[in-house]
């Protein structure tokens, strides 16, 4: 626990060095976006991408498909570091992890291929309804 601030400071130093070099409108928005997305992703173990996709679209003006792919690339390292902290903090059931990952890898390929083919309002509605049902069940279960 004592050593946690050290990497944070190093990382922030590197980030601010980058920030100084960029000097445009977008770079200012990157800081809160990055911090909030990282925090949510670490705290809830999920959802960073869901936050990041609209943020990329709205503030960095990326188009829809690009922002989805970019969100993946950003969330990946954040998930790696969060996963390390979880492994250190809680007991990991490796068997379940393997099983879920096996399904996830296949699904990941399918999803990434589908992204270019289908997108649309119904996908958002369907996904939103699923989340609503899930959240209500989790609140009252």
């Amino acid at each position: 626990m004592k050593f946690v601030p050290v990497p944070i400071i190093c990382i922030n130093y590197a980030a601010s060095a980058h920030y100084k070099r960029m000097k445009n409108e977008n770079s200012k928005k990157i800081i809160p976006i990055g911090l909030v997305v990282g925090l949510a992703n670490g705290l809830f173990g999920a959802g960073g991408g869901t936050l990041l996709v609209p943020a990329l679209q709205k503030f960095l003006k990326l188009d829809t498909h690009k922002s989805h792919a970019t969100a993946l690339a950003v969330i990946l390292p954040l998930s790696v570091i969060s996963a390390f902290i979880y492994i250190w903090g809680v007991d990991v059931d490796w068997k379940v992890v393997m099983l879920v990952s096996a399904g996830g890898v296949c699904g990941g390929v399918i999803g990434a291929k589908l992204l270019n083919k289908l997108a649309g309002w119904w996908l958002n509605i369907l996904f939103g309804l699923f989340l609503a049902v899930g959240s209500v069940r989790m609140l009252f279960a």
Partner: peptide
């Protein structure tokens, strides 16, 4: 830079979650 700024957030969030 997005990744770099995300990292401190990720570390803090997961420490809280654990």
């Amino acid at each position: 830079p997005l990744i770099l700024w995300g990292l401190p957030g990720a570390i803090t969030g997961s420490l809280i979650a654990v």
